[in-house]
Design a protein around this nucleic acid. Structure first.
Length: 382
DNA sequence: TACAACCCTGTATG
DNA sequence: ACATACAGGGTTG
């Protein structure tokens, strides 16, 4: 069965878990290179990681990056099997979804996911990405450089809590979300018990590096969702995004305007006179999808969501089919950073695309990997 | 339960 | 050209 891949894959750099990763994908492999800070004992989230002379590379014997990537892209799940399951239980999915492969739910850091999706309300992907990038640049600990470009990890709750934070974030263009971020940071840092957010993790799907913590993950999905609603700027949709992508709850189904329209159009959820739908209706939609799609309902939702986007409706044209391609080891990939014209990543987690030096080739699996958002002309209806 | 208001940016429409 | 409207994976009071 041929893979369907983007015709061109560019290397992407991102700060994650206290290191810089350079990622590149081809039909068979995800290639990665790890750049560690000179000083590797620092904890991500603490603001005092110092960079020393040149970033050093760690050797694979003690490198947990492959494990990190398998977790980050949720590679333990078999996409083909799940698509088959969803298709058998749902004729609408069977009709619309098969072309949209390569979509995966990521497992990102819970705190970063939370703040990232607070930024997402009534907002567009491009600006969300810029906002997350600004949070890292202005408040996050420096990990190191790739060329001239500095890479910062995502700032912890303490760093986003100060009194000046809200006004500064407003100046940085965060709008009304500035208050939500500062207030949520204060709540998590001071009002909630230590480790509160992590304790909402799905025990069957623990976060990276937290496998052995017995204190973690006593909650159920519904409890986790309910708890998140106590934060500022977190409604049912954002709470489900955090449950799904930050806390390992595969059954979480974020219901936004698009999914609500899909539910009404394709799943017999009655048309309603009101502009906004109620919390009861929100829960009802999620419950219905959980019933027909099962414990990875959030993934199925994401596939249908993507299939429903106009900007992806010509996906089959934008792709090329490849039967088999040999793995290439590229010594250098030069690329001129072009912030304005580079398609923005779909995930608010990704930071920047820059030049890559050397690529260490390692197999980490044959999953089709992430999608990137194409900057196609958007055809507005009505 | 039902809105308007909320920050800001890009796109469509007149 | 320039104004106005509206969407953009919502939440709050």
């Amino acid at each position: 069965m041929p893979y369907v891949v983007e015709a061109e894959t560019r290397a992407r750099n991102l700060a994650i878990h206290g290191r810089i990763l350079s990622l590149k994908q081809d039909p068979d492999y995800l290639h990665y290179k790890t750049t560690w800070p000179g000083f590797t004992t620092g904890v991500p989230g603490s603001p005092d990681i110092k960079e020393e002379e040149k970033p050093t590379e760690q050797h694979s014997s003690s490198d947990d990056t492959e494990q990190l990537l398998r977790h980050y892209f949720s590679l333990k799940h078999n996409a083909a099997e799940l698509y088959e399951l969803w298709s058998q239980n749902d004729l609408n999915f069977r009709k619309k979804a098969p072309k949209f492969t390569g979509i995966r739910i990521m497992s990102q850091d819970a705190w970063e996911t939370l703040i990232g999706f607070i930024c997402s309300s009534n907002n567009n992907i491009s600006r969300i990405s810029q906002m997350v990038h600004k949070l890292c640049r202005y408040y996050g600990p420096l990990i190191g450089h790739i060329g001239e470009e500095p890479f910062h990890d995502f700032p912890g709750p303490q760093a986003l809590m100060g009194k000046g934070v809200e006004s500064q974030l407003r100046e940085l263009g965060f709008g009304y979300r500035a208050k939500y971020i500062a207030e949520t940071a204060r709540l998590v840092s001071e009002e909630k018990p230590r480790g509160w957010l992590e304790s909402l993790t799905n025990p069957k799907n623990p976060g990276f590096g937290a496998e052995e913590d017995p204190e973690l993950g006593r909650a159920t999905y519904k409890e986790a969702h309910e708890q998140l609603l106590t934060l500022s700027g977190v409604g049912p949709k954002v709470a489900d995004c955090v449950c799904l992508m930050g806390l390992g709850w595969g059954e979480a189904v974020p219901v936004d305007t698009h999914v609500w329209q899909i539910a009404q159009r394709d799943y017999k959820f009655g048309k309603v006179k009101t502009k906004t739908f109620s919390k009861a209706m929100y829960d009802s939609v999620g419950d219905h999808f959980r019933k027909i799609w099962g414990d990875q309902a959030g993934w199925a939702q994401s596939v249908l969501f993507t299939a429903n986007l106009k900007s992806f409706s010509d996906r089959s044209i934008a792709k090329v089919e490849v039967d088999e391609v040999k793995v290439k080891i590229e010594d250098t990939v030069s690329e001129t950073p072009d912030v304005l014209k580079t398609p923005k990543p779909r995930s608010p987690r990704k930071r920047q695309v820059t030049a890559l030096e050397t690529v260490k080739v390692e197999e980490i699996g044959t999953a089709s990997g992430t999608i990137t958002r194409s900057k196609r002309r958007r055809l507005q209806s009505t």
